[in-house]
Design a protein around this nucleic acid. Structure first.
Lengths: 357, 357
DNA sequence: GTTAGCACTCTGGGCGTGAGAGTGCTAACG
DNA sequence: CGTTAGCACTCTCACGCCCAGAGTGCTAAC
């Protein structure tokens, strides 16, 4: 799991930190192990390659770097990336140009909440060159606004639950005997009278009384049946994990050279299909505003050991929360990803605020 | 494009046909070029390998087989597969065991139409070992059942369109000035009175009159605004291609040895993302009951030249149609795929019939 | 503490070779 | 005249080999 508490940045002196950063920056762009000479040349280090070699050996001893083989350059380990990520705590805002481009894209889309998170995934994918992920903002507790019962034919009807904020749940209902549209209308009116504006818990408490009140005619029986169904649907809604994870730009990830062999590709894709894990993370990464990074092996599922997640929650705590983020190879530009994810989640915050104003 | 008319099965004599089938069956299972000796051994052909070599040369001349290099075995071409597919016109039903397994899976799921097509994709994926595809059954012409207008806060409301068969469309509406829930209720009642049970075309004709009838008070203005929105939404619904293509088991396809190199994998995946093409095909493959096969290069988009589609429409012609099918490497078991797709589309037919009974 | 120098190590690409698989051809056979 | 056995030929693939190149680790000098 990701470390929650930022610990003091270990026993590394400043020069070592700078060199670690250089190694990572270089490796992120070139994807090949980086050697001491390349480092001094490209990053204009004020020391010789021999000195750098010494520091690299230290960093390797500290577990930050690894060595594919004796005569190869260094490659960052997950621990190294983690250290790097912790060290860029000064959250520099996204460059104005990129901000504008993203804002522009959001300006294009209709004002409909279901489009937002899809757009967010797409935007993140193009902006970071990794896969973009997004879940819808799921209300914490369903509150019924009203139901509708629409007859399809005699013994089949469509039950529509409108929840607060305009979320809609729809399902089919079978009856044992034919029901007229009038009976359905009467029953749904009854249900609306009793259950409107209640949460699942409140519905549950009201339900038994509601049964008695209705008397014993057919409409009341029908209404009770519907009431039960409403409760079950709302309970399901409250309990269901966020499973709808929208993703875009998966092909970006495949383009990375580390996934040149197709068995690795397979592993990455089964990682991407692992939506349950993302759903779990949604709960784990509570409050608004923070960006969370899960690097390689820090991810619980085996198949995600070669990828990293940069995620941020959005929405209104206690009311409706979702998650957006980026999935890429562990060798990704965390700096840029964090900036972008942070910005996009902020945008979504604004949009959700608008819904709950 | 796929050949629509079944032509008489070409100039091949029976022995050649049998050998072509043998080559394809063998290649489908082994994924390696098949030679004359393996053929006589495994398929107990009553001739020698030399004779088979002669026939293979004929088949190659006819464009049914190809030769990776001089000293390699034969590989079927797209034309060869096409010939093969045409020759298994006798649609043998799926083995009873598999029928049972599939029926069982469908028995598990709730009676809710939106689950069906997802389940169909999953089922097809597991049954055929390829990727399963499915689109929902989209009504041909939207017919309004009723609308609901739910206030979210003063100037924002959620407009819910319930269409026949219980399809629901939801979107947000902005108002320039604050609207009470009462005003919204009055307006939606007005709209329901005038527009219920109409198609888009009918709504369009009714709309101008409806404006006059309402007079000039605020509610009427609001209702007109909503009416316009309803019309636009219904028009969109009618015109929109089926874009929601659900897929499952993509990893199955990747496991095939022909996609061992990751650039090929990339191409396949961009093929899978090409949902627009599938939407187009939905229109192309009209009536119920027939299974359509699109082999490799027969597919219009470049990126699908290495995969095949086995698709079948389902639903009720003229009312609501969707498509289910399978996407796999051109080297797939067409026989089994066709049988399975046919069976699953038949199952979905039953389910849709139930909706429209 | 830093640096130059140097020996050492390991990879990756290029090349040649040989086994194996499969073909195409031809001559003999029923 | 179709079928078959035999055989030379071709091409791939796996293996082993070698070498250039890159990078390290160590040591001695600054």
């Amino acid at each position: 799991m990701a470390r929650r508490i930022r610990r003091p940045l270990g026993p590394l002196d400043l020069r070592a930190q700078a060199i670690l950063r250089a190694v990572i920056d270089e490796y992120v762009t070139t994807a090949t192990p980086v050697g001491s000479q390349a480092l001094v040349a490209k990053y204009r280090l004020p020391v010789s390659s021999a000195t750098v070699r010494g520091v690299l050996a230290e960093l390797e001893a500290a577990g930050m770097l690894s060595h594919p083989h004796t005569s190869a350059g260094r490659v960052p380990t997950d621990v190294g990336y983690r250290y790097y990520v912790e060290s860029i705590n000064v959250m520099e805002p996204l460059p104005a140009v990129e901000q504008l481009m993203i804002r522009h894209q959001f300006g294009q889309v209709e004002f409909a909440s279901e489009h937002w998170f899809r757009l967010a995934a797409t935007t993140l994918a193009t902006a970071t060159g990794s896969a973009g992920l997004a879940t819808p903002a799921k209300p914490v507790a369903a509150r019924l606004r009203r139901i509708d019962l629409v007859s399809i034919h005699g013994r089949l009807a469509s039950l529509i639950l409108v929840l607060r904020e305009g979320t809609v749940k729809q399902q089919l209902v079978h009856f044992d005997n034919v029901q007229t549209q009038e009976a359905l209308a009467a029953a749904s009116m009854l249900v609306n009278q009793h259950l409107a504006d209640l949460t699942a818990a409140q519905v549950e408490r009201r339900l038994p009384r509601f049964g008695e009140a209705g008397g014993e005619d057919e409409v009341a029986t029908l209404a009770r049946r519907i009431g039960d169904l409403v409760l079950r649907t709302m309970r399901d809604f409250d309990h269901e994990k966020i499973e709808e994870v929208f993703s875009d730009g998966l092909l970006n990830v495949l383009a990375a050279p580390e996934f040149a062999q197709s068995d690795k590709v397979r592993r990455v894709f089964s990682a991407l299909e692992n939506r349950a894990y993302l759903g779990d993370l949604v709960d784990a990464i509570g409050g608004r505003g923070r960006v969370h990074v899960f690097i390689g092996q820090e991810n619980r599922p085996e198949e995600m050991h070669e990828v990293s997640l940069v995620l941020a929650p959005y929405g209104q705590p206690g009311r409706a929360m979702g998650v957006v983020g980026v999935l890429g190879p562990t060798r990704m530009s965390y700096r840029h990803a964090i900036g972008t994810v942070s910005f996009v989640s902020g945008l979504l915050d604004e949009l959700v605020d608008h819904l709950y104003a």
